[in-house]
Amino acid sequence: MTNTAIDTSNMVVSDEVAVEIVNMNKWYGEFHVLRDINLTVNRGERIVICGPSGSGKSTLIRCINRLEEHQKGKIVVDGIELTSDLKNIDKIRSEVGMVFQHFNLFPHLTILENCTLAPIWVRKTPRREAEEIAMHFLEKVKIPDQAHKYPGQLSGGQQQRVAIARALCMKPRIMLFDEPTSALDPEMIKEVLDTMIELAQEGMTMLCVTHEMGFARQVANRVIFMDQGQIVEQNEPEEFFLNPQSERTKLFLSQILGH
């Protein structure tokens, strides 16, 4: 676990609301996946969401950029309410970056092309400029020299860092991470987490679904525990780990930290 002190000078939580979720509900057929979710995320917050599998945590963050449609309640992202209006959906998707468990890089495009695709076609950035931005972020995730390779030629950790860079190229105001490290070999997890920590230090608003409790302790300013589609407990990391309130949280923590 990296316990090097991290620079928190930029990690300021402002009063501005970035994401607001009010009484949100979602069903898959008959199955009630998300039940009465209420969550407000301020700009600059780093939130870690954890919980057993099937608890709805991935579904929750996929609702924030409308990869999943919610059926009841309200989601406001960056002051824009997420309705069925396509224009709003497009606007929100280009403001919200997402990193997936299985990277989902486009295998037919080079790393650089992966990063410039959306800026060119969605933001209508000129190619040269888009490439400069892409190189900037690739340097940031420490793989500028791989820019002209194809995703298949990179290791899992490198691919995930490219995926982060790809999302950053859209200059998002919010980043969503959907279990970014759970498809990686142990020795590659650190390089991805380091990148995420760096991002946090720059003051990015982040929602991470992850089981990396070390990351949660170091970076998060709030940890949310979900079970059976609801938010069971949320607290500051110190309190959350040292003094969990709910029985289910205790059980979960004992299982995940028990070894």
């Binding site: 059926q71 009841k72 309640g73 069925s84």
Partner: peptide, 8 residues
Amino acid sequence: MTAVTDPS
């Protein structure tokens, strides 16, 4: 599955 429309 009809979406429950939000007031806004």
